[in-house]
C-alpha cells in the first residue's frame, strides 16, 4: 500500500481535480483520474518533499472555522475602511516574536495572515523568530500581537508538533 500510494492526500486531491475538471464520474474519466493520481504520487516521491507530521484533526477543523469567520469579519471591516470618507491614519509595520519554526506551519500562518484582509505577511527572520507584518488598522499593537499569537500560532504549534 505504501509503494502504491506514497502520498494519499495528494493523490486524492489529483483525482478530485480531474473529476471536477472533466465534470463527470463516468468510468472513463475515473480511470484517467486514477492514473494521474498514481503518477502524481510517484512523481512527488522522486521530488522527496520533507516529511510533515500533523496531529489533532479536531483542532485543524477548529482553526479552519476560526479563519473562515475571521476572513468574513475582516472583509467587512476592511470594506468599511475603504469606503469610509476618512482613511485610517494608523497603518503600519508590526514586529511579532514567534515560537513557530516548522516550515509547513509557517507557510500555513503566512497564508492565513495574507488571505485575511487587513494583515499582510512581509518577512520572517528564521534565526531569531521575528515576524514582520503590515497591519491596516494598527490602533493597538499589543492587541494585534496577542491575536496572531493566541488565535493562530498556538493552534499551529499544537498541530505541527
Amino acid at each position: 500500500m505504501r509503494w502504491l500510494l506514497p502520498h494519499p492526500v495528494i493523490s486524492a486531491g489529483l483525482l478530485a481535480f480531474w473529476l471536477m475538471a472533466s465534470r463527470s464520474v463516468a468510468p472513463g474519466p475515473m480511470l484517467v483520474g486514477a492514473i494521474i493520481a498514481l503518477l502524481g504520487g510517484w512523481a512527488l516521491t522522486l521530488l522527496d518533499p520533507p516529511k510533515v507530521r500533523i496531529r489533532r484533526p479536531g483542532l485543524i477543523l477548529q482553526l479552519a472555522g476560526r479563519v473562515f469567520v475571521d476572513i468574513i469579519r475582516s472583509n467587512l471591516a476592511v470594506a468599511r475602511i475603504v469606503l469610509s470618507r476618512r482613511l485610517p491614519r494608523r497603518t503600519g509595520f508590526l514586529h511579532i516574536p514567534l515560537a513557530l519554526r516548522e516550515p509547513h506551519a509557517l507557510a500555513v500562518l503566512a497564508c492565513i495572515l495574507t488571505a485575511t484582509p487587513g494583515t499582510a505577511w512581509l518577512e520572517f527572520d528564521a534565526e531569531e523568530g521575528w515576524l514582520l507584518i503590515h497591519v491596516l488598522d494598527l490602533i493597538d499593537e499589543e492587541e494585534w500581537v496577542r491575536i496572531v499569537k493566541e488565535r493562530y500560532e498556538a493552534p499551529l504549534l499544537e498541530i505541527f508538533r
Binding site: 468574513i72 472583509n75 470594506a79 482613511l87 495574507t114 488571505a115 487587513g118 499582510a120 503590515h134 491596516l136
Partner: peptide
C-alpha cells in the same frame, strides 16, 4: 460589490503597503 470595494481600495489607499490589503477583499469573499 466586494470586488469593486477591493479595487476601489487599490485606487484610494496612499502607500503600496496599504494597497496590499484591499485586493484580498476581492480574492476572498
Amino acid at each position: 460589490f466586494l470586488s469593486l470595494a477591493g479595487s476601489f481600495g487599490l485606487l484610494r489607499m496612499r502607500t503600496f503597503y496599504d494597497r496590499l490589503h484591499a485586493p484580498t477583499i476581492a480574492t476572498s469573499m
